[in-house]
Design a binder for these strands. Structure first.
Lengths: 218, 218, 218, 218
DNA sequence: GATGAATGAGAATTCATTCAT
DNA sequence: TATGAATGAATTCTCATTCAT
């Protein structure tokens, strides 16, 4: 990004300076925001939202205090952005599920989700599931986080409703039960999986799917 | 804590009250600790661990700063005590389950647990499940809370192992699957229930048990 | 303020500790507030409201940051308190005027006021008139200061209305003019005196009263 | 400031615009400075010197940060420029007074000045008198502003000395009093007028002149 | 010269904890 | 032991100013 001319051009009796109009703004701004969120995310995955100080985020992001505050008005906005970002993983789970050509069974859907959760958790830059757990706690007294969390979770749970409906249609599952209830249970297995993985460390998609399969098999 | 004298002694320009110091120390100490934890718990249920300040706890408990610090060395100790207290509810769930005369089926056990969770959550003094969610987040970077949480959760999950074994013994559940895996799934339904109840507000023991029953019914 | 007893009194089978109930609160609180305002005032007299930092006030007051914030919720509150305090000098001018046994003429009243302004300005702890000038500027965009200033100024101007009325009654001043207008002019000489004294340094009650007397003498 | 090219040059992934640099430098510079001072003045009239940030000035002026700093080395220089500009109104008062063909009486001179003060205050771009009040406060701890203010005020006061001399010459005013003292009082009525107008809002040239006339009439 | 993103010192404020009484 | 005023390090956020383009 070098300045091209140091000496003014002279044309029509006027001197001209060449001014860079960096296209920067749009993408650059987003990239910087992402950079900051990434820095913050890795702090939060380690220390939680509240032990993470702005100084941590600033240091980790490699920017200055002023720069960070140029992209986010407050720590709360960064917290919300991290939560959004982490809960955005839900969208990725969703895409993964919808990419499947054939319809999935309940167990199949759960297995797919669990495997993708593990995949996401192991991405570099801080375990998303750790952030999800922070987000659960935060959502209880932070309306912004609550709003994101509930909408994302309703979305994913909606997918399980669809799975339940199909299973009811082909007679695999009792057709008289509200598919929402079935989805509550299926979706409701995720937090328990995440929590046991983080706190007890002895679950895996394989053990979990095996356990569920055993329960479902008559 | 009776006052012996109603009229203050005045000496050196200061007034003094003479106050009875009951010898009860042992129980008294415990009562005081409980009083502080109760105060702190109701703050934490509303605001979370980190937004709850010592000043909040001190005000809510009706004691003085010095008094509170006489019973707890630090905020961290109070946090640990609240987590212990909240996770102690697990013991109550457990007692509830063991009190049953006849052995429970997986669905029955879950229903019993969910109903008791609701019962505990609705006790006055702050919803325990809100504190549990805070404790999950805290456990990720607070060893004391992590230790309590994991031991309690292993204990409760152990109960579900027992349930699974019984169901395998009487042929209700496939006997070739490790009962630990089955317990992971059964126990793993609790966090999802708690979370959906707090964040989405549309689950109940009835809907959940119906959903699970539909899944299990062939 | 020494603790009287180190060893518990034992009476009626109970042990007693003697607890100091410092009468502190009421007067002590006021004294501390005054101490902080005094510190702040001397800073403000030198540097103005905005160049005076909380760190300055804290250092000058000899207290800690926390202590200062225990008495004032914000810098704005301290600013308001200083303005109140400085504008409270108006009350002192007023008292001075009302203490006079015989009624004053316009020139006499002005002279008395100017002399007392000088007296107050020369008190140790920061020239009040410098703070008054800051308060004028502040009042233009600080509602709290504006409210105090306008009420105090109306009060003092009201005194001059009274002076004007008397002068009209005894025929010294034209009776057909609204005494409020006359008071506006009399009271309105004060800011100009204060300003010329601070910025030009060449006015005194003597020169000012001489000038006014010359104007009034036919 | 005409753009020669409508289509950006693109080079190295950046787009460039070529802009005409008028040779006008001298006037252009002054125009730009005036533009910046005007922007800053309207901010200061609303918020005072210290609440006005450079960001405010930059936004209001429509220029870039760099551009503003190209014309003023620091905020302090802008503050000084605004004060100079506002105190420059004194020159306008002065011109107004000297433009009168016949010599003025003290009351006449004051009336003329007050009326012109109102005229200036009501010009668009921020009430000059509000800025004057800020300048008074600033002059107490800003040598540049102090220097400008005192020289301007001495100048205007000098005019009143002249008025006083004339009145002494034609016997309207006692000849034994130093005309400087009389000027102190006459000039000293201005700040009180400005302040009462801004803080109390109930004075006008008419009420003020009426009040003064009543005082002077035997 | 012009731009505006970036800088970083410094400001206001909070809060866990202590300690004289 | 009990009190609660006091402490001061740590935290969030601002804003005058610079500098690569």
């Amino acid at each position: 990004m070098s300045l091209i001319l140091d000496t003014p051009l002279v044309k029509n009796g006027h001197s001209f300076y060449v001014r860079a109009m960096p296209k920067v703004t749009a993408e650059h701004r987003l990239a910087r925001r992402a950079q900051i969120v990434a820095a913050a995310r890795s702090c939060v995955a380690e220390q939680g939202f509240h032990k993470t100080t702005m100084a941590d985020v600033i240091r980790e992001s490699g920017l200055s205090a002023g720069a960070v505050y140029g992209y986010f008005k407050s720590k709360d906005e960064i917290v919300a952005a991290i939560a959004d970002d982490a809960l955005g993983s839900i969208d990725k789970l969703f895409d993964e599920l919808l990419a499947r050509p054939e319809p999935l069974t309940p167990v199949g859907a759960l297995q797919t989700v669990l495997e993708h959760v593990i995949f996401l958790a192991e991405q570099p830059g801080g375990d998303v599931t750790r952030i999800a757990v922070q987000a659960w706690a935060e959502a209880l007294h932070n309306e912004a986080v609550h709003a994101t969390a509930s909408s994302k979770y309703l979305l994913l749970r909606g997918y399980f409703v669809e799975i339940a409906r199909r299973a009811q249609a082909d007679g695999t599952i009792d057709a008289d039960t509200d598919p929402e209830y079935i989805a509550q249970v299926l979706f409701g297995m995720l937090p328990g999986f995440i929590l046991q993985r983080l706190l007890l460390g002895d679950v895996s998609p394989a053990t979990y799917t095996a356990g569920l399969a055993a329960l479902l098999r008559p």
